[in-house]
Design a protein around this nucleic acid. Structure first.
Length: 276
DNA sequence: AGAGATACCCGTACGC
DNA sequence: TGCGTACGGGTATCTC
């Protein structure tokens, strides 16, 4: 499941492959990918464009094109890119293929078809992202006060608040659990009930969990891969995620699993004791 | 009214 | 061998 570290890893791999290249042909074979825009219209609009940048905001990839266009890509659950020095091999799950002017092909593969491609005018990108996303967790705007503002007065579980992309951009199910473990906060704690020192610890924990994920080039569960097909290694670093019954790396107590905000949630019932 | 909770989309893996 | 169910990001739509 690509979260911020996985998307950032994809961005870093895609950047040298795409920037400066011209798209010579584009095929989008799944209408869902660009819905409600017809996929043929998006493909036609991509052809002839040169890629100027590959950016990221939260879990969105931003492929900057000439003529003031930006392809906004969200990988959702199972989206991934492939980079091929020649023609890409046949694959029933490939939903789009771009042929570049250096003879390479870039494929977009998405088993469950939740991913989206949205072609926007450059001027519309910031407003589009601003209404969906809070601060970038690795940037200057994300400090203890920003997180406090996002959690203040909210009666929902702190984990649900972390999964809300308007609180902080890019945290998904894995890194929310890892951050709460690092901060020793129970996932069901009411967001607005956290004291200032808890919020400060959580802010640092979110940042640390995401930075570790980026250093490990993401987590590979089932089929996440970077564009060269390489797996990440973050899954070997999980402290709690997916580890029900295994000993907590800090205190040895068995990791528990519950459901929060409809998501599987793993935590240590001893170090992350529920208070108040 | 506004926040929070739930259903939905989808294909695969898994358990019985 | 086959069938039902869990999974989950973002969004639409419900509820209280």
């Amino acid at each position: 499941m690509p979260e911020l570290p996985e998307v950032e890893t994809v961005r870093r791999r895609l950047e040298p492959v795409l920037v400066g290249r011209r798209i010579e042909a584009a095929a989008i074979v799944d209408e869902r990918l660009t819905r409600p825009e017809p996929s043929g219209a998006v493909a036609a609009a991509l052809v002839g464009r040169r890629v100027e940048s590959v950016g990221r905001r939260g879990k969105y990839l931003l492929v900057g094109l000439d003529d003031e266009l930006v392809l906004v890509v969200h990988l959702r659950m199972t989206g991934s890119f492939g980079h091929w020095p020649d023609r890409a091999p046949a694959d029933p799950h490939v939903r789009a293929t771009l042929a570049l002017d250096d003879g390479c092909e870039v494929t977009y593969r998405d088993v469950r078809r939740f991913g989206t491609w949205l072609l926007l005018d450059a001027a519309d990108v910031e407003p589009y992202l601003a209404e969906r996303l809070g601060p970038e967790p690795l940037g200057r705007a994300f400090g203890p006060r920003a997180l406090a503002r996002a959690l203040d007065g909210r009666r929902t579980a702190v984990k649900a608040a972390l999964l809300d992309q308007r609180s902080v951009a890019g945290v998904g199910n894995i890194y929310a659990d890892e951050a709460l473990w690092r901060a020793r906060i129970h996932p069901l704690t009411r967001a607005g009930a956290l004291a200032a020192p808890d919020v400060a610890r959580l802010q640092r924990a979110v940042r640390a969990a995401l930075e570790t994920g980026i250093r490990r080039q993401g987590a590979t569960l089932r089929d996440y891969r970077d564009p060269s097909g390489a797996a990440g290694s973050m899954q070997d670093e999980f402290r709690v995620y997916g580890r029900e019954g295994e000993p907590c790396p800090r205190c040895g107590a068995p990791i528990a699993k519950i459901r929060v905000a409809g998501r599987g949630t793993w935590f240590c019932p001893v170090c992350q004791e529920r208070r108040a």
